[in-house]
């Protein structure tokens, strides 16, 4: 396959030395890989800081050109249930590893998307194939992974990337792609990325598709247009007393941007503190928001619950608490 023109791929580090911001982890992983034997790994940390990248580097180092045959990448949040995961692992683990390494590597991304029961099943699968396979799990929070799995893995907590790390990556790509970036665009990219390197690179590429001479204004403009519009608008309608428009808009946002109810509630929870209402009411609204989020995790209907929350915002708009 030729070079992909998606920069997150094109410029994905392929050697340990190219990884930014995770020196400690890289050093330890590298020494394990060089001994041609690795334990199971658990990589934890937020999105876009190099977890998948490091997994890919590991297999490329271990298997060289044969890495594709000896590497299985699964995403827990996409696979439908643990049974699919197990079946795929089974099929993959059945054959022996090629090359000189006695095991294959399975990368299970977003492992925290698995329920506790599914993780128990996964743990058995890990045990069954431990002779032929090594697992690398990745997750956002290691606390969401059950102890028995954690104790079978070497756990690495990835650090959030700092501004200098993101800027280094951006600079590297800009040079290769002949882009001219004004100094303040580095700040703008870092701000918008919130430390997520994938997001930073995507933003850079999206901006570069308009111009090769880039300044912070253009970046901010692109970043703003990317933001899922709406939650603010929804709340504005509600605060102005227009419940019907608020809920229509809410459904619109949820459907068109494919955002889940829990994503909406997170957004609302943050937004409350930017609103022009009495602080006491903000506290009350937060209480209600928390309750609604809890109900969603319990299996309530997201939209019914969110409407109930919007109704509270209507009252808040009139200076009343529920």
């Amino acid at each position: 396959m030729g070079q992909v023109d998606i920069w997150t791929e094109k410029y994905r580090p392929t050697k340990f030395e190219e990884v930014v911001g995770q020196q400690e982890i890289v050093k330890r992983v590298k020494s394990l890989v060089q001994a041609m034997n690795i334990p199971h790994f658990l990589f934890s940390g937020p999105a876009g800081i190099g977890k998948s990248t490091l997994a890919l580097i590991i297999v490329k180092e271990l298997f060289n050109d044969a890495w594709r045959e000896n590497y299985l990448e699964l995403n827990a949040s996409d696979e439908r249930g643990i049974d699919v995961v197990r079946q795929k692992v089974k099929d993959f683990a059945r054959t022996k590893a090629l090359e000189n390494v006695p095991f294959k590597v399975i990368f299970l991304d977003e492992a925290d998307a698995l329920t506790r029961e599914a993780q128990q099943a996964l743990r058995r699968t890990m045990e069954n194939y431990t002779n032929t396979c090594r697992f690398i799990l990745s997750c956002n929070y290691s606390s969401a992974i059950i102890d028995p799995i954690q104790s079978r893995c070497v756990v690495f907590r990835f650090k959030l990337l700092e501004k200098k790390d993101i800027s280094e990556v951006v600079k590297r790509i800009a040079d290769k792609e002949n882009l001219k970036l004004s100094p303040d665009s580095f700040d703008a990219i870092y701000e918008a990325s919130e430390g997520d390197c994938r997001r930073a690179i995507n933003l850079l590429q999206a901006t570069a598709s308009i111009a090769l001479d880039i300044n912070s204004e253009m970046i901010n403009m692109i970043a703003a247009s990317n933001k899922p519009a709406g939650i603010k608008v929804v709340l504005d309608y509600a605060l102005a007393g227009d419940f019907v428009n608020a809920r229509d808009k809410l459904l619109d946002v949820m459907l068109k941007e494919s955002v889940s109810g829990t994503d909406v509630i997170k957004e609302i929870q943050k937004e409350i503190w930017n609103l022009q209402i009495e602080p006491e009411i903000k506290v009350k609204l937060t209480e209600k928001t928390g309750e609604i989020e809890f109900r969603m995790t319990e299996g309530s209907d997201e939209f019914v619950q969110l409407q109930s929350l919007l109704a509270s915002f209507v009252l808040a708009g009139q200076g009343k608490a529920t």
Binding site: I6, N202, L203, Q205, A206, S209, I210, N226, E257, S258
Partner: peptide, 8 residues
Amino acid sequence: DFNALKPI
């Protein structure tokens, strides 16, 4: 992230 990726 579809919106952000669309230009790409």
